[in-house]
């Protein structure tokens, strides 16, 4: 902390830091009296490239489906996260709203690269796309705080490739997959953290060259240490009637980022009700 005190790295701490890092036109930060959220010039925190489920894993894994696979239930960890994000946008003002993200200051959907967001929670592959921005190599990586239960949870996408049973050309598809795996260049373009240890070291070195970092500028170890803490159940787990559920979740995300003055508990209850209808429809078929 600026006053030199050591504090626990929790989500509450992160919020306080994010608010301090949120600055308006007059140079006031979001914790100060007279801060004007209408003229924010720099935001403290955002989540980039997240769908509405991805943005909800801050406090632990969870989901929108109960264990039986057919009841709509927004897990408590998700509920807490939605409330936290919502307050971050509309009350504490450190998290850009949908509108702010679309302004010239943030150049949606690449807000972090604009240089006007202090901390962003996103995937490692996003390193592909920060070069073009104002940011250059003035960034680093850090660990996310532990959840309220003291457990660390990391939003993780395990990208795998599969060949469909009905594929017309399984052999050719397999060859393509092999080529993707073998090609160092494609691996860099793809940007996901490789699964093999040796490849990982090469991956980090390549990133250092790309951004003209000196060794040690970025704590790559963060990526490696995060791997054992994926969100369980995953935010990308199976959902009944997926297309419709996804659309409803997208509407929910738009709502969170677009409308002030909501009571989150009510909105989540509405969401659950609608999702239940959507799930039932799938079960009836």
């Amino acid at each position: 902390m600026p006053d030199g005190k050591e504090v626990d790295w929790t989500w509450a701490t992160l919020r306080d830091v994010a608010m301090k890092l949120t600055v308006d036109k007059a140079g006031k930060d979001a914790t100060q009296a007279g801060f004007d959220p209408k003229t924010t010039r720099q935001w403290g925190f955002n989540q980039q490239w997240s769908d509405s489920r991805g943005m909800a894993v801050l406090f632990g894994g969870g989901g929108i489906v109960a264990a039986d696979g057919k009841t709509a239930k927004v897990s408590d960890s998700y509920k807490q996260a939605y409330k936290w994000v919502y307050d971050g946008i509309w009350k504490d003002n450190f998290y850009p709203s949908g509108e702010e993200a679309g302004s010239e200051l943030l150049a949606k959907p690449n807000e972090f690269a604009s240089g006007n967001v202090a901390m962003s929670y996103t995937h490692s592959w996003f390193m592909c796309c920060m070069e073009g921005g104002n940011l250059k190599n003035k960034w680093g990586v850090g660990v996310v705080p532990a959840g309220p239960d003291g457990k660390v949870t990391v939003k993780m996408h395990g990208d795998t490739f599969s060949i469909m049973k009905g594929s017309k050309n399984p052999d050719a598809a397999f060859n393509v997959m092999l080529d993707i795996m073998k090609s160092k260049e494609l691996e860099q373009v793809y940007g996901g953290l490789p699964s093999g240890d040796a490849e990982r070291a090469a991956f980090f070195t390549a990133k250092e060259t790309q951004f003209k970092f000196k060794p040690g500028d970025v704590t790559w170890q963060v990526f490696l240490d995060s791997v054992p803490f994926p969100d369980v159940p995953s935010h990308e787990s199976l959902t009944p009637n997926y297309l419709k559920a996804k659309q409803r979740m997208q509407d929910f995300q738009s709502l969170i980022q677009g409308k002030a003055g909501l009571v989150m508990d009510d909105e989540i209850a509405k969401l659950e009700k609608d999702l239940q209808k959507i799930f039932d429809e799938a079960a009836a078929k």
């Binding site: 010239e104 150049a107 949606k108 959907p109 690449n110 690269a113 592909c128 796309c129 073009g132 921005g133």
Partner: peptide, 8 residues
């Protein structure tokens, strides 16, 4: 408008 790094 939908891809990375949309600069005005």
């Amino acid at each position: 408008n939908n891809t990375f790094g949309t600069f005005p």
